Amino acid sequence: MAVTSRPKATRALALSPLESFVLVLLLLLGAMVAVGPALAPDTVYTSDILNALQPPSAEHWLGTDDQGRDVFWRVVVGARATLLSALLVVTLYSMIGVAVATIAAAGPRWLDETLMRITDLGMALPGMIVALGLAAALGASLQSAIIAMSLTGWPITARILRAVIRQTSEAQFVSGAQVLGVSKWRLMTRHVLPNSLDVLIVKWAGDVSTTVLVLAGLSFIGVGAQPPSAEWGAMIAAGRSYVATAWWTVVAPGVAVAVTSIAFGLLGDIIQVRNDPSLREV
């Protein structure tokens, strides 16, 4: 009896257990961002000292913090601030990196060299330290952290994309477009750049993973989100004094940061495998 195999298209759409797990995590995070604040009680920002540092119970699933606020609902509400901030940071500096790489590739050689030397200088500087300094100079707040990271994160994106654009520019379809008389700028924006963005998409997902950690770190050291914000890094900073007696005030937001970072890191790996047939299992 002949053995039939699934069509390639069906196999490409099928999800592995790991991909299904990541999808569930991302859907859960998306639900927390979309509807979490609407479902949360009004007391997530209201102090109730009489119920401070209560352990996990049926009433408070993840206990309460030093102000008597429900930790579970603060984690849920904090997903919007943490995730949207990370997505905004990565999107902003990715746009800057794309613009720099495109202008460098489409412009004259002297402009390309100038922009790439500026990019190399930006890569040589310790990004975390520069972002920390900028955030502190702008004033401790989540908005300052977003601006600081957006201004310091673009050089790597620009350098990587410029290299990919250079490689794509050597493809046969680009040579054909040049023969037809397509202008350099139109060739770059309509043909080369769209065929170079797959690498950027993979990097974008991985960068969200890293940015969640960095934003939480900036809030933890006091230059990011400030109390009484439910941002996860700020929650960890507020609960660090009670680790020995009320571990849940730190563990709950810490696990949320770790799970979110892992989910987006795995998403980047999955997208890369899906886009590169050589990495797939036969």
Rank of each mutant, 00 (worst) to 15 (best):
I147H: 06
G122H: 04
S141Q: 03
L132H: 04
I146C: 05
G122V: 04
A135K: 06
W110Y: 01
A131M: 05
I129W: 08
A135E: 05
L142W: 04
M116C: 09
L121E: 00
L132Q: 05
D120C: 12
A136C: 10
L142R: 14
A124P: 09
G127P: 04
A148V: 00
W110I: 13
R117C: 04
I129F: 14
R109A: 14
G153P: 12
L134W: 08
G127Q: 06
A145T: 08
L115Y: 01
T119Q: 00
Q143L: 10
V130P: 11
S150C: 12
A131N: 10
W110M: 06
D112H: 10
P108C: 00
Q143P: 00
A131C: 09
I118N: 01
I118T: 00
I147Q: 07
G133P: 08
A140C: 07
W110K: 11
A136N: 13
A148S: 09
G153I: 12
A137S: 15
I147W: 13
T114H: 12
G122E: 09
A135W: 03
T114V: 15
L115E: 03
L134M: 15
W110D: 00
T114D: 10
L142K: 06
M128A: 15
L125T: 08
L132Y: 13
Q143R: 14
L115W: 03
D120Q: 09
A124V: 01
L151W: 04
M128S: 09
L111E: 01
L132E: 09
M128N: 04
M149E: 02
L151F: 08
A131P: 09
W110H: 13
M116E: 07
L151V: 04
G133W: 04
I147P: 08
T152R: 11
G139P: 10
M128C: 01
I147E: 07
S141D: 06
L115D: 01
I129T: 11
I147D: 09
L132P: 10
I118K: 02
M116I: 11
L134V: 15
L125V: 14
G139R: 02
M128E: 12
D112A: 13
A135D: 08
E113A: 13
A145C: 04
M123T: 07
A145K: 07
P108Q: 08
T114A: 15
L121I: 15
L125H: 10
A145N: 05
L142T: 07
I146R: 05
A137W: 09
S150N: 10
L111H: 00
S150I: 12
V130L: 15
L138Y: 04
A135N: 11
L138R: 02
A135Q: 10
G127K: 03
S144K: 05
M128R: 03
M116S: 05
A131D: 09
T152N: 10
W110F: 06
L134H: 11
A124C: 04
G127I: 00
R109P: 11
